[in-house]
Design a protein around this nucleic acid. Structure first.
Lengths: 186, 186
DNA sequence: GTCTATACCTAGATAGAC
DNA sequence: GTCTATCTAGGTATAGAC
């Protein structure tokens, strides 16, 4: 595997478990077994690293959402798969959505990174809106009135569920938080 | 006003806008107009500062929730006041709930701080549960079935709404995220 | 209780050999 | 592409004068 990819993998794990300010090139170097100077060859500044991180993360997640749409024809199936995705991302409370790490740090990040976090939220919300719109047609999610509002609510819900479950290091908190949404799926 | 209080105020603002790793004693010193060495007199380590921050934050918020319960007899009024509290805390997207900052950082924090974040979430969820339980009696919030699940969901929702609104620096995102919950209040 | 001075460390980043 | 060596800046924290 390419060093750039290995670096991104390790950096993503570190950023999602400790925050973007919570690890250094030194930590990253220890993780992948090279010297920190070598990392600068691939990602000259930590800002560059943040751009690469969010860019890949965004593509990966949007890809998975697209695949969910292909595999699941019903709105309920799509919603449950979406919840599975965020559940898996939590890794038992050890890891957060990368966007949360970047939303907190924010100030020192390149504008491109901040823009990509925004785009990510916007695109995920749009995907969710299509799910809730579909639900109004196929009736597999209970009590949907405004698909746009539902979408923004569902996105905030899973991000917040990450926060709460992470603070408690307890997946049960995640389950409790999403319960009212999950049980609306038929 | 006491220096300790001035320091806590400034530290809270910094932590909630940049994350707990996003500011130093030097930044804090600049904010309050004393030297960073003087801060160590009041809070010897940054860990001590984190303990003082979360302790005061927890008390303040729980106090406000208690006052809401006194002033608002109806479940809907309490829920809307709760949403007002989190809306105000966002400060137009500039500031997050302190717990989010601590949930991300986590690893380097004293155990007492981590425990207090947990306690905070637990107590807020308990307060919300009483609200939803009341709602089943007075009928001022639509479609409440499981008060416990509603409580955990509402807490995660407002925390996540903070994240999304902060990333976009746009209060409209907060409103969009809480819309389906807010409109259930009668 | 606040200051200056400083110790000690780690951060991000660069230069140049290999 | 990775290394050693080094720079500069900044971090947390302490000692001791005022």
């Amino acid at each position: 595997m390419e060093t750039k990819t290995i670096l991104l993998d390790a950096a993503e794990t570190l950023a999602r478990s400790r925050g973007f300010d919570g690890f250094s090139y030194g930590d990253l170097a220890d993780c992948v077994g090279i010297r920190k100077a070598s990392i600068h060859y691939h990602y000259p500044t930590k800002g560059d690293l943040s751009v690469a991180l969010i860019s890949r993360y965004r593509e990966t997640v949007l890809d998975r959402l697209a695949r969910i749409s292909e595999c699941e024809s019903r709105a309920s199936g799509r919603l449950l798969a979406f919840l599975d995705l965020y559940r898996a991302a939590l890794q038992g409370g050890r890891s957060l959505c990368l966007c949360i790490a970047f939303s907190v740090t924010q100030s020192a990040l390149p504008d491109e990174t901040r823009q990509d976090v925004k785009r990510f939220h916007k695109e995920v919300a749009q995907w969710l809106e299509t799910v809730f719109r579909l639900a109004r047609g196929d009736g597999t999610i209970r009590a949907v009135t405004d698909p746009g509002a539902e979408a923004h609510g569902a996105l905030a819900l899973v991000e917040g569920a990450h926060i709460v479950a992470r603070a408690a290091t307890d997946m049960a908190r995640f389950e409790a938080a999403i319960d009212t949404l999950r049980t609306r799926a038929i």
